[in-house]
Computed example of a mutant assay.
Amino acid sequence: MPKVLDCLVNVHFGEREQPAWMLEVRDKYFKGPQSMYRQVDLAELIDEMDEQGVEKAILMYSIVKPSPTALKFVEEMPDRFALAVNGVDLLHPVSSLRELAALVHDLPVAYTTVGPSFWGDGMYPPTDAVYYPLYYKCAELGLPLCMNTGLPGPPIPGEVQNPIHLDRVCYRFPELKLCMIHGADPWWDVAIRLLIKYENLRLMTSAWSPKRLPDSLLHYMRTRGRDKVIFGSDWPVLPMRRLVPEALALDLPDDVRDNYLYRNAQEFFFGGRSAGGTAE
């Protein structure tokens, strides 16, 4: 079985009661089971990872509400887990970015993330200057930044997640390693055009079933985008047991499939290091 690096995994859902909009996403959008937001058992997660060939998983971790589960998993199995940090306060960035830099220094942080539709009432597109301190700090640290693109599942404004906004961001910050996450529906063609245009840009298919990816993206992956598209599940919203077999069934050459499932993420998020953090 090919190696897999799952770049977006949630282990914090069971730590606290979920807000109403998260319950609505589970019930109406993903039509998931009630158990989707239960507390995660480490052994159960590792079993699913081993079964599907997932060598390493990147766990979501918030500055605002740190996840003890994510920290515990990283501490117990540093060879299997890294962190993705969200929650930077864009309106009061100085102390928040200092905290981000400290976390990057002290913990195995693979990237930081922000969802334009999920803060500030969805009124700030990525071109707004409120993001610039974050862009600068990520470029300075060499830390990849993942940004939600595509219309979000919850009933909140989505226009700010049109990937066209990243055209100006990539132009102004060519040193920034930037990745679109959660696909780019319904703006896939815009996203693909931007991937062709900018060397520092990637796309992660987290929260998307591989069998539902558009033909245009698969064609791009087979041709000019062999090193540009990255796998992520958004587990447990979409389980690895479903997504990895779907990814393996895609009409992709073996090397393109391996890039998608492992090598592209290894290079982009770990700088050419192996998934365990050691030089290859």
Rank of each mutant, 00 (worst) to 15 (best):
M1L: 04
D6R: 07
V9G: 06
H12V: 01
F13G: 01
E17S: 13
Q18Y: 04
A20M: 05
L23W: 02
V25C: 10
D27E: 14
Y29N: 04
F30C: 01
S35D: 11
Y37R: 04
D41Q: 13
D50A: 10
G53L: 04
V54L: 08
I58A: 10
S62A: 12
S62K: 06
P68I: 07
A70F: 07
L71T: 09
E76H: 08
A82V: 00
A84W: 00
V85E: 10
V88D: 09
L90D: 08
L91D: 10
V94W: 00
L97H: 03
E99G: 00
A101E: 00
A102Q: 15
H105K: 00
H105S: 01
L107Q: 15
L107F: 08
V109C: 09
T113S: 13
G115L: 08
S117H: 13
F118H: 14
W119A: 11
M123Y: 03
P126H: 08
A129N: 06
V130A: 14
P133F: 06
L134S: 12
Y136F: 05
C138L: 03
P144C: 11
L145G: 02
L151M: 14
L151Y: 07
P152Q: 11
G153I: 03
P157W: 01
P157M: 09
V160R: 03
Q161D: 06
N162R: 14
P163G: 13
C170V: 07
P174W: 08
E175I: 02
K177L: 12
L178A: 03
M180R: 04
I181S: 08
H182T: 00
D185Y: 13
W187P: 03
D189V: 10
L194W: 02
L195P: 00
L195C: 01
I196W: 03
Y198N: 10
R212T: 10
L213E: 01
D215Q: 15
D215N: 13
L218Y: 09
M221Q: 12
R222E: 04
R222N: 09
T223F: 06
R226M: 11
R226L: 07
I230S: 12
P245L: 12
L250Q: 02
D251H: 03
D251N: 13
R257C: 11
Y260G: 06
L261D: 02
Y262I: 04
E267K: 12
E267C: 02
F269S: 07
G271E: 09
A275W: 11
E280M: 07
